[in-house]
Write a protein that binds this DNA or RNA. Structure first.
Length: 306
DNA sequence: TTCCAGGGGTAGA
DNA sequence: TCTACCCATGGA
């Protein structure tokens, strides 16, 4: 048994905040290295810090929706430096959108009533990854494949290329751009089974690892959405659906990913099972302005899980 | 077997 | 800008 250092960290998110509702807001919590521990109502994740130190984070909600706190238990092989502690707090805060302000969205939800009124109890935060690189790779792994295939590909990426938690080779972090770049496209295809996505993901990793592509700079909220969208669409393997999903993950909700889920849902709820013209489907959420995606998201969620 | 999934790239109009 | 056609994979 490897000896472990345990560090407790605490974060106060902007209220209202629903911890479990945020962690389980969409499929990302089901993709490694994320794990939802149903018995303890906690979320664990192996994280490789910039120092190279690989830590296990167990994250729990505390307090109430109105006075929330986030408690982080970090296990590591050696004591964490002040920089490493700060990096963990920044990463967890980003993943859970601790500081994001949803007050304008909640105000619209109160005006519209059901089903959106439920969101005002601290929902609206969609779980994301600590790096845009991880979110882009995972999003490419959702295109033109069933969800089980997405889980299979991401699991293999983590198992084969992720840095192991010391003493626990079965627990690994999401692979760094360097680790994916160091693998050949042939290996990504044959071993990770990425299929035709292999060259897309390999090229992306090579560009990020080599410094010619600074994905993380696109997290800057000062950048205009059309600029970020143009950058995203320039990534091979990212088209209209993936770009809209990634904009949502970046906290930009003015564009809805019109994928099969969207088309099937609006057809079922608003058009009596018929396929509506694109213009009419798009117009459904126009009144929500910059919050279109979240409005659609709650509409969808409430329809299938009333 | 055949189809197709929370699409996207490319060539050719 | 729009339309065919192709692309790996694995489950149904």
């Amino acid at each position: 048994m490897t000896s472990r250092e345990i560090t407790y960290l605490d974060l106060t998110p902007r209220a209202p905040f629903d911890f479990e509702g945020t962690v389980r807001s969409h499929g990302w919590v089901l993709l490694p290295p994320n794990v939802w521990n149903a018995d303890r109502r906690t979320w664990t994740r192996i994280e490789r810090l910039r120092s190279g130190n690989v830590v296990q984070l167990e994250i729990a909600g505390a307090g109430s929706v109105a006075q929330p706190r986030i408690q982080i238990t970090a296990q590591s092989a050696r004591p964490l430096s002040a920089e490493e502690r700060a990096e963990i707090l920044t990463a967890v805060g980003w993943m859970l959108r601790a500081d994001e302000d949803f007050s304008a969205f909640y105000a619209l939800c109160r005006e519209r009533g059901e089903p959106w009124i439920r969101a005002t109890q601290g929902l609206g935060r969609l779980l994301r990854s600590p790096t845009l690189f991880e979110d882009v790779v995972k999003t490419i792994c959702t295109t033109n494949i069933k969800w089980s295939g997405t889980q299979r590909m991401v699991t293999r990426l983590v198992e084969h290329l992720g840095a192991p938690f010391p003493g626990e080779p079965g627990q690994r972090a999401f692979p760094t751009p360097e680790a994916i770049a160091a693998a050949t496209p042939e290996r990504l295809r044959a071993e990770i089974r990425l299929g035709y996505r292999a060259p897309f993901i390999h090229t992306l990793a090579v560009q990020v690892a080599g410094g010619s592509l600074d994905l993380e700079a696109w997290r800057d909220p000062a950048l205009p959405t059309p600029v970020v969208k143009r950058h995203l669409l320039a990534i091979k393997g990212v088209g209209a659906y993936a770009a809209a999903s990634l904009l949502m993950l970046l906290g930009r909700y003015d564009d809805i990913a019109r994928d099969t889920v969207f088309r099937d849902f609006v057809s079922a709820k608003y058009f009596d099972g018929q396929t509506p013209p694109e213009v009419e489907a798009r117009a459904l959420y126009d009144a929500w302005g910059p919050w279109k995606f979240l409005a659609y998201w709650f509409d969808l969620w409430s329809y299938y899980e009333p």
